[in-house]
Design a protein around this nucleic acid. Sequence first.
DNA 1: TAAAAAATACCTGATTACAGGTAGCTTATA
DNA 2: TATAAGCTACCTGTAATCAGGTATTTTTTA
Lengths: 210, 210
Amino acid sequence: MNSTIKVVIVDDHPLIIEGLQILFSNSEIITITDSYSSASEFFARDSFDAIDLVLLDVFLPDMNGIDVCIEIKKAQPHIKVLAMSSQAERSIILQMIRNGASGYLLKSAGLAEFKYCIENALNGKIVFSDEVSNLVNQITSNDLQNIPRLTKREKEITILMKQGKSTQQIADILFLSYLTVQTHRRNLLNKFKVKNGVELINYAINNGLI
Amino acid sequence: MNSTIKVVIVDDHPLIIEGLQILFSNSEIITITDSYSSASEFFARDSFDAIDLVLLDVFLPDMNGIDVCIEIKKAQPHIKVLAMSSQAERSIILQMIRNGASGYLLKSAGLAEFKYCIENALNGKIVFSDEVSNLVNQITSNDLQNIPRLTKREKEITILMKQGKSTQQIADILFLSYLTVQTHRRNLLNKFKVKNGVELINYAINNGLI
DNA sequence: TAAAAAATACCTGATTACAGGTAGCTTATA
DNA sequence: TATAAGCTACCTGTAATCAGGTATTTTTTA
């Protein structure tokens, strides 16, 4: 029986993958078994049984890390997910943890932190790299309220709004009725309790929704 | 005589440093001679003569990459500077190049891109990793002219707009006439050649104006 | 497969933003 | 001290957004 921890990496930065592989190449506890540069590549795996933990980049080219985390935990609850990012954004950290992630690491974390966090995540702990810990400690009840998520259509429309497109232009681009886009816009404003498009975009950017 | 290219890394991500060192460990052309995790560590070197190129992270804990680049090029013009970042922000790319950097690489770039860019930067070329190239190619005459800067009043109003405040609310907050705020809004849209407030805010954020 | 969520579409009225022009006053700066 | 740049303010008309309600169809999920 093999008792090493089997870790896969999902990150679109080849350098990070290289670095992690070197880091754990001599480890008898942790083995990097595979690495993927996109979410879809990862999900295309044949089997997920032999995975103990996923080191997951928060910003991937095809999906955002929160959605990836949700999908992994839904389909393979035995897999621990450790989020990695270059920046520590409170809202993203919170959403990750809320959706089942075992922790959040900054890529600027030291090598020892990586090892420590992976091992402790496997033991069921919620782990953060040092800088993130400080942020997490500052979290108030205010931050704990759920941030509504965007549906596929809503995301499309939000991105077009961000580009300065008008309701009519968005309708033309997405082949929808002007009235449908109007409805989506209204739903978005209600959903996030904002008063206009400018505030909506600002909120969406700050919370990593687009 | 030694003809290898001597490269130093300035980056606060240990993983990236590891990755780059591995990447070039077998190279006969490129040698990583040193690495630093902050700008001040780098500037504390005894001598800069033996450096051909600096791989410079744009976001460092103590200084921003643009200022580091300016200092390097001022004190040691013979050193080529290659900027590295996780994100491709047009305004930062432009400012880097304007201040003497030889190129801009995304950390998500492939290993081959890193090699290619370092070698060509040494030959005096301006180099970009693939994704960045696309962005740079999109730079139109619109972007090449200097980005207009915000006046004090305009900045106040832009920030309030970002918060979702209406023209009337902004007028109340700043003790101005509704009509005055209207004029400022119009000037802002003209100045940045955008069509509406959403686009304005997006532009301002992307270009570090607010 | 039934229930819930998402996407689609329409109507109406009120509010706000956008676009054009004009102009006096203040504050830097050449 | 000119001259430019910035700030202030007004008028008018058009276009777009916001806010309320309703409702059918499709897709997802329990």
